[in-house]
Amino acid sequence: MGWLSSLAYRNGPFLLSLAALALLWEVVGRSIDLITLPPLSAVLAAFYDLWASGAVTAPLLDSTLALLYGLVLSLALGSLIGIGMGLSRFVDVALGPYVKAGLSAPMIAFVPVFLMIFGIGPATRIATVVAFSVFIVATNAATAMRASDPRLIEMAHSFGASRWAIFRDVRLPAGAPYFLAGLRLGVARGVKGLINGEVLIAIIGLGGLVKKYGTVFSMDQLYAVILLIVVYAAIAVGLVSAVSRLLVAEEK
């Protein structure tokens, strides 16, 4: 049982503190009648109800679809820009400043604009996902293109390899890990963009549920939705991490 004791050693303090918090939450929630703090058991019950009643199925599907569309768009657009920047100094000089700005500036400020132009349909959320994820995909795609050893490229040239052959056989394999890292970060950011967009739009998807329960102070259901979103974000990011680990492992 070596792994068990090492698990207890590493995670023991955290699990203990988590249990203490849960217990405190339950006790305080039961003894004091605060609307902001329903007992933990009520939240878990609401989580189960939400799930069992099918009330979250439609918003969940809706959100996931918007996320997927947004990510595909980001991937296509971001790769295009990033590969261009990685292969050509000219493109890098021309577009680099915008990509860098888009990476760190609060792109979320555009959500109200998207909302006014696209309405409350999926387009607004898709645009938000793209705004959150496209720049990191582009940045990493550019890094990926520059990752290959210049000596290898020279070697390929000396053997008369074509530009395309060099791209496929030298640049792509060397850049794959960076590319996948960009994808992983893009998904993580995209999920946040999605939820941010939905809460700000306040009517649809998972974020819409947050607003719906939040405004009527239906706290047990609200916490249940938050729990759902956390699990959702964790699964989305975890899935991409797992897939990219598989892909990179295969490369080697």
Partner: peptide, 11 residues
């Protein structure tokens, strides 16, 4: 870091 903090706003 992992969760969208915006979900906590109602709280």
């Amino acid at each position: 870091v992992a969760i969208p903090v915006i979900a906590l706003i109602p709280v």
